[in-house]
Each structure stands twice: as C-alpha cells, then as structure tokens.
Design a protein around this nucleic acid. Structure first.
Lengths: 213, 213
DNA sequence: CTTGCCATGTTAGTAAGTCTAACATATGTT
DNA sequence: AACATATGTTAGACTTACTAACATGGCAAG
C-alpha cells in the first residue's frame, strides 16, 4: 500500500519513531532526520506538525510520563492497600521503567528549561508524582503514621530517583560491580518508612508493624 | 600581546573555554566551534590536542571531579571527625557544586558509555566516591555503628544524588515551589544515619547520640 | 648563525543536521 | 467540477564535527 504523497498518520508515526530512536541511540544520538527516514518522509515534513525538534520530543516525554504513571498504578493494585510492599512496588516500577528506556527517563526528568507550569511535560510529571503522593497518603493513614505524607513521599522519591539515576548512568557499576541497587533501596526505604512516629491513640491495624528487622 | 600563530597554551585554554561554555549554555548547548572562537583559534586547531570533542569534555569532567572531591575534603575538615555534621557537610557540598554548575554535574554522572575502568573520568569518579566512603567508615568507627560502612555510604550517596538531580533539573520546582531540598535531605539522612544498630560492648564517645529528635 | 625538522597553527572542504521558503499534490467542501 | 487547504516535496541557508593539505615558527644539530 503506497501512500503516494500523504502519509496520513505522520504525526503519530514521527512520535513513535522518535521514541524508538531515543531508546536505540540515546537522547543525544537522536536526530530528526533519522525519524524522517524511518517514517519514510522528507526532512521537511515534520514541520507541518511540529514547530521544531524539541516539540516532538515533548510529546514523547509526555507519553513516557503516562506510561510510567500507568505502570506504577498497575503495580500498586497488585499489592494490598496500605502495605509497605505497595509502596516498594512503586519504586521498583520506577526503576524498571528507567532501565528499559534510560534515555527517555533522563530526558523526562532533565528538562531544565520547561519551567512553564502549563507545559505539557510539566503537567504529566505533576500528575505522575501526584499519584505517588496519594499512595503514600493512604499508607500513612492506614498505618497511623504521624507526619506530613507529602514530605515522606518526597524522601522516598528522592531516594528512588537517586538509585535510578546512578543505575542507568552506570555510576554504581563504575564504583564496583558488586553493588546491588535492590539492596540499597530495600535498606534505605525500610528506614524511611518504618522509623516513623505513630499515633497510638486509636485502634486499628498497623500494617507496617510486622516488617523484617 | 598578539600570539601571531602559535597560541602556546591552547590545550588548557580550550579546556577552560569548554567548561565555561558548558556552564553558560548547558551540556547540549556547547559546541567546539564556540570554544575555538573564545580561544581565538580556528575550528581545526583543537584536533592537534584532542582526538575529538568528547576528549575535551573528558578533561573537563575529570577536572570537575577533582574540584568536587577537593570541595568535599575542605568542607569535611571544617567539622570534627566522626560528627554527623561532617557527613552532612559532604552532601551539602555535593549539592552546592551541582547547583553552581548543573550541566557539568549532569555530564560527570551521566557518561553512560564510559565503562572502561581505566578511563580518566571513571578513575576520578571512583576516587571521589572513595573519599566519601572513607569519611563514612570513620564515622561508623567513631560511633561504634554496626554494619557495612560501604553500604551506608551508598545509601547516603543515593539519597544526596537523587536530591541533587531533582533540584538542578527543576523537578522539585515543577511539583511545588514550597519544597525545601535541605529539609528533605536533613530528615532522610537523619534516619539513614541514626537508626543504625550500635555496638555497645565497648567504651568511648558516641558522637551521634546527641542529635536532634 | 643557519638549516631543517616537526609541533602547532591555518584554510578549504565534506558530510550531517536543523530549519525555511517555494513549490506540488491530494482531499474534501461547496 | 473547482478551489482552498492540509500536507507533502525539493532546494538551499546555516551550523557543526571532523579531515586533508598547506603554512609558520620554535628549537636542535651542525
């Protein structure tokens, strides 16, 4: 089937090609020309759909945030509400996502310039973190944890984000090939989640109480 | 003083120009041509001193690691040995370094390809982290902390690295303008440092015992 | 001192990439 | 059926990384 002149789905085809190329060649290895070649159009064609290269990548990043959020949501529902496993599953999903598409992850969180609050990438990023906060809020409520859930979520995010960055950039590996990210995450998140003050003035289950010492 | 033909110090001049340009324009905004313009030479001149663009940047990154290590060492000596303040000062220096030269920091830790153990950037990175481990080992010994100091250092590094990345990439700011990195770091590192098992079978000062609750 | 080597610079040119302008074609609305 | 518009193309301007061939001048051997 020859699309003699008009492609028909060029916009989405370019977004898909861009994501695939970022995955294959890295964020700095990606060229618009490459994406055009893959989509079978001339190098001028994208400019009917996007202002510039950056704008295509924004779509890719937004889609990346959607995928990440969806992945975390799926992982969460597989664990009981309020369980520490549910929180840990979020971090695990985050890490796995980044390991599957490191360059995409790096671009998603490395968009320094995009400080405009209404920017598409910023919005998706917000809703992604918003989901994490919701989960932590639930965890704190069900476990009668005292303190600001937002602050706890931020600490966990910071930890997991650090572990993810050091993993996908190969920094752990540069130090030693015996470093286990999982171990670091498990130990540290255990400390962050379970050495918290509890409200003991109310009855009910305390889900985190039976964690390994 | 006209350097009519031969520059004399071109190699170092190019490294300096590269670092300055990375600071000013970001890692993706840096071009070799720019550095040549700033050094006052033609665009072919660098190739007498470096194989390619990447090789200049490697020198910049190595110098960056040296600066970071030196900065942390200076910050450490300003605090008493074995004190938690000394450990926290390392993290603080790490963060400040990255905030001063975000693009440089990102490149220093984002060199995915450089997995060759004898590579100049890898070596400097190793010795940088090695310094941190030494400090944590000292802390653990003076505070009779049980457990692998390396593992504790890795947790702290992971946390601080995450906080640094989320700060310089503006990710905290995208979520909310009320987020304080310092608070996150203080809370989390407190948990990572002070909820550790201690050996109580020996006398001596326990430096961390008087930390704020 | 002079001669010539060679380290280090230059100019010119290639290939790739982003993006613009002017032109071409298909699609669908009247 | 005819035109307006959306969406493609080709040609080209400009930037960049890098190479090849040439130029210059500092320095060492005679």
């Amino acid at each position: 089937m020859k699309k003699s002149y008009h492609h028909g789905e060029l916009r989405q085809a370019l977004i898909d090609a861009a994501r695939a190329l970022v995955r294959e060649k890295g964020d700095d290895g990606f060229s618009l020309s490459d994406a055009c070649r893959r989509a079978g159009v001339s190098t001028a064609a994208p400019y009917r759909h996007f202002a510039d290269k950056h704008e295509i990548l924004d779509e890719v990043l937004a889609q990346g945030f959607d995928d990440l959020t969806a992945g975390m949501a799926a992982a969460a529902t597989a664990e009981p509400a309020g369980s520490p496993q549910r929180i840990l599953a979020l971090g695990h999903t985050y890490l796995k996502f980044a390991m599957a598409e490191p360059a995409l992850f790096r671009m998603m969180f490395g968009q320094k310039a995009d400080t405009a609050p209404d920017h598409i990438v910023v919005q998706r990023g917000k809703s992604c973190f918003g989901f994490v906060v919701e989960e932590v809020v639930t965890f704190c409520r069900l476990n009668r944890v005292q303190g600001d859930a937002m602050l706890i979520a931020l600490q966990l995010w910071t930890l997991v984000h650090g572990a993810t960055g050091l993993t996908i950039d190969g920094d752990y590996a540069k130090i030693s090939d015996a470093i286990e990210v999982g171990q670091i995450l498990a130990l540290a998140s255990d400390r962050l989640l379970f050495s918290l003050p509890r409200r003991m003035d109310a009855p009910g289950p305390i889900a985190g109480e039976d964690h390994v010492e």
